[in-house]
Amino acid sequence: MKGNLRDFSPTQLLSLISLAKKTGTLRVERSKGEAKLSFKNGKLIYAAIGDADGSLASVLARAGRITEAQASQLARHALRTGDKQLGLLLIQKGYVSQADIIHSFKRHGVASINYFAGWKEGWFEFFPDQGPDDARITVPLDLENLIIQIARIQKRDEQLEEEIPSLDVALKFSNRPNVKLSDLQLNRDEWQVLHYIKPENTIRMIARKLNMSDRQIRRAVGSLREAGLVELAHARRREKLTVEEKKQKRALVGRLIEHIQNIGAE
């Protein structure tokens, strides 16, 4: 099973692996990085994607259980012992519990799948029965609910692209907000966007300022619009008419009005 994500999306691919309860490793290569996802009976058991290599040290550091410095030290240790031995050692010494490790790996799996679902292109190949290195820790993660959740988010993103077709428009505060500002429960992105709403700032400019992707800014603006707080304020790039042209246009519109008023009256 091989191809390009342009033709067969990550969600379709994950859905196929999950439904067919496949065992093996999916390798994906693209210009911006690569992914190695291993499955057992359709469940994700190991993920190395981008900078996250799926090692115990990296997973614990990303979960905030250990510092980056400690992670580097543990990574060196793991080269000698392997992750499984290292995990046992950490549990025995009381640094982390088994539950902490399982929870951190599941969190890493969810984050990896969410990240991978956003990939638009990349060559993939599925290697049946191939698993991760024996020394790696594997924690099974059900994909069904995750795929449904991702599909919902992707559908919402598609709707947002239709609702906000261009990012080169400014935002304005709505004249009739449906909610009180003091009652708002906005996330960090939404509050930041609110801060930059000015007639001279387009959505794209706000996204650049806040270092947000197109998708992120659309989600934030979409939520603010749903709450009835903001509206798109299209720039009024009115045609520049001379006084004489304006006079002619007014006369023309006047003639149209008079004619339409009289349709059917003759």
Partner: peptide, 20 residues
């Protein structure tokens, strides 16, 4: 209904005048 359509078009033309 032609009268209804006329009303919509006229309102659009009034908007054009208002903008001017």
């Amino acid at each position: 209904d032609r009268e209804s359509v006329k009303a919509v078009l006229l309102e659009l033309l009034y908007s054009i005048l208002e903008e001017m």
